[in-house]
Every structure is written in C-alpha cells, then in structure tokens.
Simulated assay, not measured.
Amino acid sequence: MNFFIALATFILMEGATWLIHKYIMHGFLWFLHKDHHDHSNEGNLEKNDYFFVIFAIPTIALMYFGSLENFNYVFYIGLGIMVYGMAYFFVHDIFIHQRLKVFSKTKKPYFLALRRAHKQHHKHITKDKGECFGFLYVPMKYYKMYFNTEKK
C-alpha cells in the first residue's frame, strides 16, 4: 500500500507542477523564475534554483513527521514528492538544460519531444503567454513530431 501512495503522489505531482509553474512561478514569484527564462544570471546558479529549497522544505517535513508515526502515509507522500523532485533535477537540469554535458545525443522520441516542448516554453521570456508548463507530460503535437516516419 505504501508503494502505491508514493507512486500516486509522484503521478499527481505532474498536475501540481503544472499549476505551480503556471500560476506561482509565472505569477507572484516571477522575480525568482525570471532569470531562468532570460538568462540574466552571471554564474552557474540562478534565483530560480531557490525553488529547490522552497519545495524541499515541505517534503522534508512530511518525511520527518511521517517517520515519527512508524512511517505512516505522510512519510510516503513526502517520499513520492522527493522522488519526483529528483526526477525533475535529473531531467530538467541535467538532461534538458545540460548543466552537466551528458545524455546530449539521444535519439529517443520521447526525450526529443520533451526537449522540444521545453524549448517552446522558453521561447517566451516574459511571464505571460507561456505554454508547456508541465514536466514529464509532453503534449501530443511534440511527441508526434518524432514518431512521424512517413515520407512526404
């Protein structure tokens, strides 16, 4: 049962991420997210990186308080959020933005579509008129681009 709580939380985090990204990061916390779009930072870190800390705090709290009660469901909700956060870091920061130069030559359609959707999101350098606010879900139009093998 605990595995399913963590798995369901991981899956539900995609919707939460979309909402947080669209209405909070592109809303009242745009001042933290802006440098991720306009690349106005000078170093390796961005103000946007504060979101890792912001999201880690409730995750750690859930896991801590859930562990006090014999690792109850609260712990496994925190665990699902933590695993999603780890996936986000590896896929978004390492794979998509190439903070570490690995996995840059993939030919897998899903990963190519994921990069394309994220690139579409970043073509907007203001907080308005964005698209593709999700993370692991790729809109079908980008996915189809890399599966269409018919000759025209």
Rank of each mutant, 00 (worst) to 15 (best):
L62E: 01
L136F: 13
L79H: 02
V74A: 12
K107S: 14
I125F: 12
W30K: 00
K47E: 04
F95L: 05
M140L: 12
R116E: 14
M82D: 11
A56W: 09
K105C: 10
F28G: 02
E69R: 15
H33P: 00
F28N: 10
I60Y: 11
A117K: 00
Q120A: 15
G66T: 02
F95K: 05
H121R: 04
K47P: 01
T59I: 09
Y73K: 11
E46R: 13
N72P: 07
A113M: 02
Y88K: 09
A87H: 08
K141Y: 13
H33A: 01
T59M: 11
M63W: 04
N44A: 14
F135G: 03
K47L: 08
F55N: 10
T126Q: 07
F51C: 04
H92P: 04
D128Y: 14
K108Y: 13
I96C: 12
M63F: 03
H92D: 10
I94W: 11
H36L: 09
F71Y: 14
F52E: 02
V91S: 13
S40E: 03
A87E: 04
Y137V: 03
L112Q: 09
F71E: 01
Y64Q: 07
L68T: 09
D35Y: 04
G80D: 06
Y110R: 01
F52M: 07
H97E: 01
M25Q: 08
Q120T: 08
T59C: 12
K101E: 12
L79S: 07
H118A: 01
E46A: 13
H124A: 14
N44K: 15
G85I: 02
